[in-house]
Amino acid sequence: MTIAMGWSTRSPRIRYPELIATYGGDTLWAAMVYWLLAWWRPRVPWPVRAPAALCIATAVEFSQLYQAPWIVALRDNPVAALVLGQGFLWTDLVCYAVGVAGAALIDALLLTKQPLPEMEHT
């Protein structure tokens, strides 16, 4: 469902508000990374998966600064472009944090029902 929603933000047939059209795909891409980790390692709790997903998404974003001819050619493939991205943007890092946090919150509250950490009151 996350992948379908992300693709829909790039569809010219569906008109989303500008904020969603601009940042929704990147936000949902990071959520997808979280869900893939949850599928791959279901016994790992969300407080471990969330930082791992954010690290993976951030590493992929920073890899876009690497512009060797072989990887530029690879990114010309539409599937590889969806996975690896096209160009580094600082705003994508914010999208990734929001996407991972949203997926982890859904996971914690609705799916695994793992408790959220207690907040200290000062």
Rank of each mutant, 00 (worst) to 15 (best):
D76A: 11
L93A: 11
V94M: 06
D107C: 08
R15K: 15
A31F: 00
W40A: 09
A108H: 05
P115I: 07
I71A: 02
Q64H: 04
A73I: 06
D92H: 15
A80E: 06
Q64K: 07
M119E: 13
I3Y: 07
W35Y: 04
L54D: 02
T27Y: 01
Y96W: 05
R13E: 10
R15C: 10
W29Y: 14
V83S: 15
Y34R: 03
W70R: 07
I56E: 03
Q86C: 13
L19W: 11
L65Y: 05
D107P: 07
W39C: 04
L116S: 10
P12R: 09
L89K: 11
L28T: 02
M1A: 15
W7V: 03
Q64S: 03
V79L: 15
L82W: 14
I106Y: 15
W70C: 02
V33W: 00
T22H: 05
V98G: 00
D26K: 04
A21M: 11
T112D: 10
P78L: 13
L89P: 12
G99A: 08
A73F: 07
Q114M: 15
P117W: 09
R10F: 06
Q114P: 03
I20D: 07
A31Q: 00
I20E: 06
A21G: 13
A4H: 08
G85K: 13
P69Q: 08
L89Q: 14
S63P: 01
G99L: 08
P12M: 10
P17W: 06
T122C: 05
L110K: 03
V83F: 07
L82N: 14
L109S: 15
A52H: 08
A31H: 01
F62K: 00
Q67N: 08
V79W: 14
L37I: 04
I14N: 13
A53F: 13
T9V: 11
P115V: 03
R10E: 06
T112W: 12
